[in-house]
Design a protein around this nucleic acid. Structure first.
Lengths: 208, 208
DNA sequence: TATAACATACCGACCGGTTGGTTTAGTAAT
DNA sequence: ATTACTAAACCAACCGGTCGGTATGTTATA
């Protein structure tokens, strides 16, 4: 190897992600991207064969860090409690804490950004998103099922749907916080999701 | 007046909405739009002064039909029950029923599409979205407060946040159904939201 | 009732500028 | 010698938008 290009490459990726999140992929031109990243078109095409490769690289990186964070939060929750329900509530709480630290609206989710321009991307790129959502459903759904074995839920609930509700709550809250400009909105919605889980797995009144 | 142009105008609007929902506003070029709508560029600029005017006209139309549907569903619910909680549950149920009729994934929400390209639109256009979300919060939040007066909620809940959760659930579910290709996902999430409301306003165990 | 006058609907060639992408020639660090 | 860049010129396709002209009506008037 000669000079180390990872700094430039990462600067391009970071800048692209930020630009895509506030104006979409299509409106993010390579010329303006490299200008803002402080590099050149030649450098861009040295690192990425095409704009499509940039799109794939970005979403792949995003998915990996998303699943890494999920794994880290699960690990912390597993360390803090042995009860399956508490573990779920702790994971939700960790995400809620993160979102409470925001002082401006969350910039949004790259997956959602791509999906609202879905026709521009190839199947290879889109399947990264699909796989990631399914991974969330499988893992969080599994945790909820373990909780449901110990604490019979008060309504007839599909744990996969309940897992989807976490992801969906986040996606929905991101969108609303974008326009309502209330940084705490995401944390509030996660709080409501946690309340739902608590209520759902709470022992039901004996009278029923 | 001469010939009636409303049919052409509406065809442009309908085609534009569909195209924007699957590839975004930026990637929807006027050339391809008029080609698909079966008209011409000259006709387009006769009806709309600019692409920005198209954007505004579209979102305004979308917001109006969204609030009209909400009003219609509220009216039906008010006719079916006098109980404030039942009315909320009926409104949710009416939306759920609509979503159960889907055989392919919901095409998505124009608001979310715009917000993920927010930098491309002027404040005038974006405030239509903002106003509509706030209207939902005010009206549905008010209904929830009425329910809370009759049925004291089992957790300390902000009714405005609870109203936001409905909108957020929809937005989140739209995104997920786009990639997971499960048409029933939206209805499932609305079902969970309704379960939450039911649980929340249900009389709590006497022991507490 | 014919027709002139006018308004609106619509057409498609064309404009300057931008797009993603290529090429070429050179510099600098390992 | 290999790799990481910079800078600039260049390309064909496409972008939003303009413009002159035509087609299709309605309305006023003689």
């Amino acid at each position: 190897m000669a000079r180390d290009g990872t700094a430039t490459r990462n600067k391009i990726l970071d800048t692209a992600e930020a630009m895509i999140l506030d104006q979409g992929f299509s409106a993010t031109s390579i010329d303006r991207l490299v200008e803002r990243a402080g590099t050149t078109k030649g450098s861009f095409f040295h690192h990425f064969d095409s704009k499509a490769v940039l799109a794939y690289t970005l979403v792949e990186r995003y998915a990996r860090s998303d699943l890494d964070l999920f794994a880290a939060n699960r690990a912390r929750a597993e360390q803090l409690s042995r009860d399956p329900l508490q573990r779920v509530l702790l994971v939700i709480g960790l995400y809620k804490e993160m979102m409470e630290g925001l002082t401006e609206p969350y910039p949004g989710c790259l997956f959602a950004s791509y999906l609202y321009e879905a026709n521009l991307f190839d199947d290879h790129t889109l399947s990264v998103i699909d796989d990631t959502y399914r991974e969330w459903r499988t893992i969080l759904g599994g945790m909820l099922e373990q909780a449901a074995e110990v604490y019979p839920p008060r309504a007839d609930i599909d744990c996969a749907h309940l897992a989807d509700m976490f992801t969906g709550s986040l996606e929905g809250a991101f969108i609303m916080s974008k326009t309502l400009k209330e940084p705490q909105l995401v944390a509030n919605q996660l709080g409501l999701y946690r309340d739902f889980i608590e209520l759902l797995f709470q022992p039901s009144p004996a009278a029923n």
